[in-house]
Amino acid sequence: MTEYKLVVVGAGGVGKSALTIQLIQNHFVDEYDPTIEDSYRKQVVIDGETCLLDILDTAGQEEYSAMRDQYMRTGEGFLCVFAINNTKSFEDIHHYREQIKRVKDSEDVPMVLVGNKCDLPSRTVDTKQAQDLARSYGIPFIETSAKTRQGVDDAFYTLVREIRKHKEKMSKDGKKKKKKSKTKCVIM
C-alpha cells in the first residue's frame, strides 16, 4: 500500500485542523484551538488504489514558523489553505509557496490551493482571484467548507493525484537520464 505524506499549511484560523478532522473523523470542530502540530493517518481508496494518507496539520501562528522547514522537508505534497473571508490569509499563500519551493529546492512541488469556509456569506476573496492565482502557479484550486464537508475529500484526493503525477514524471525523467548515460565512448 502506497503511503502519501501530505502537509496542510496556511495562516492561523483558516480551518486547516477543521478540514483535516472532517476528512479523518467526519465531524466539524467549530471551536478554535490553535494547533502546534498534529499528525493523522487514514486509509482510503483513490482511483481504485488503496493508500495510506499521513497528514500533518501544522501551526499557522507566526511564533511556530521555525518548525516549518522541518515538516516541509518531509512532506510530499501540500494543501495551501486560505479562508475566503480573510484576504490576508490569501496573500500569505505566496509566502508559504515560496518557502516550500526553497526548502524542497524545487520549482515543481505537488500543491493544491484550497479556499476554505465557502459556506460563509462574508467572502472577501473572489473565486476568480483564487483561480487566477492557482493557474499562475500551475496547481489545482478547490473551494471547501469544513463545516458542510463540501470539497473536503476532493481537496485531499486531488493532492494525492498531483503527487502521483509528480512521481510518474520524475521516474520518466530518471529513465531518460539513465538511457543517456548508457551511451559509451570508444577510443581507438
Rank of each mutant, 00 (worst) to 15 (best):
E143D: 14
L159Q: 00
I187C: 15
K176H: 14
Q131S: 11
I139E: 02
G138V: 01
D173W: 03
K178Q: 14
Y137P: 01
F141W: 01
K184L: 00
Y157F: 12
V186E: 15
V186D: 15
G151R: 03
V152I: 13
K128S: 13
K172D: 13
A130N: 03
D132A: 08
Q129G: 11
E168A: 08
A134C: 07
V125C: 01
D153Q: 13
G151N: 13
H166K: 10
A130V: 13
R135I: 08
K177W: 09
K176Y: 08
G151E: 11
M188T: 15
M188R: 15
D132Q: 07
V186L: 11
D153I: 14
Y137G: 03
V125M: 02
V152E: 07
K178A: 12
I139W: 03
A130F: 15
S181I: 03
T183S: 06
G151Q: 13
Q131F: 05
K175M: 08
A146I: 00
T183H: 06
T144V: 12
D126N: 09
S145I: 10
D132W: 02
K128E: 11
A130D: 03
S181F: 02
R161M: 02
K165P: 00
V186C: 13
K175Y: 15
K165N: 07
L133I: 09
D126S: 08
T183V: 03
R149E: 03
M188S: 15
K182I: 04
R135P: 02
V160E: 02
R149Y: 14
K165G: 06
K175W: 05
I187A: 15
I187W: 09
F141V: 04
K165S: 06
F156H: 01
S145F: 07
K180S: 12
D153R: 11
R164Q: 15
I139R: 01
K165E: 06
K167C: 02
Y137K: 05
L133P: 01
Y137L: 15
R161F: 00
K177G: 13
K128W: 06
T148R: 09
V160F: 06
E162C: 03
D126V: 05
L159M: 04
K184V: 00
F141R: 00
Y137V: 09
A134Y: 03
G174Y: 00
Q129D: 14
H166E: 04
E162T: 03
S136P: 02
K180A: 10
T127C: 12
D173F: 07
Y137C: 13
I139D: 02
R161V: 01
A130W: 15
K178L: 11
E143V: 03
G174V: 11
K182F: 03
R135L: 08
T158I: 03
V125H: 01
S136R: 05
R161S: 10
G138A: 05
S136K: 12
K167D: 05
Q131W: 04
Q131R: 13
V125Q: 00
Q150W: 04
C185R: 15
L159F: 00
A130K: 02
K178Y: 08
R164S: 08
L159N: 00
S145Y: 07
F141M: 03
I163Y: 00
T127H: 11
T158L: 06
A155T: 04
L159D: 00
Q150P: 09
Q150G: 11
L159T: 01
Q129N: 11
K169S: 11
A134E: 02
V125F: 01
K167S: 05
S145D: 15
K167L: 02
M170G: 09
C185V: 02
R135F: 10
K169I: 11
K179W: 03
F141D: 00
E162H: 03
E162M: 13
D173K: 06
V152D: 06
I142C: 07
K169D: 10
K177T: 07
K167R: 09
S181Y: 04
K165D: 03
K182L: 06
V125A: 02
L159E: 00
D154S: 09
I139V: 06
V160T: 03
E162Q: 12
E168T: 02
A155D: 00
I139Y: 06
H166I: 07
L159V: 06
K177C: 11
S181P: 04
T144Q: 05
I187Q: 15
K165M: 11
T158Q: 06
R161W: 01
D153V: 13
E168G: 07
K176S: 11
K165I: 04
K172L: 10
R149C: 14
D173C: 05
D154T: 08
L133K: 03
Y137A: 06
H166V: 07
T127M: 13
K169F: 10
D132G: 05
K175S: 08
A130H: 06
S136V: 10
D126K: 04
T127V: 12
A134M: 04
I142H: 02
Y157V: 14
A155V: 12
H166D: 07
K178P: 09
V186F: 06
K169C: 13
Q129F: 10
V125I: 02
E168M: 11
K176W: 07
F156E: 00
Y157S: 14
H166A: 07
Q131D: 09
D132H: 04
K128I: 11
T183F: 01
A134I: 05
F156P: 00
L159A: 04
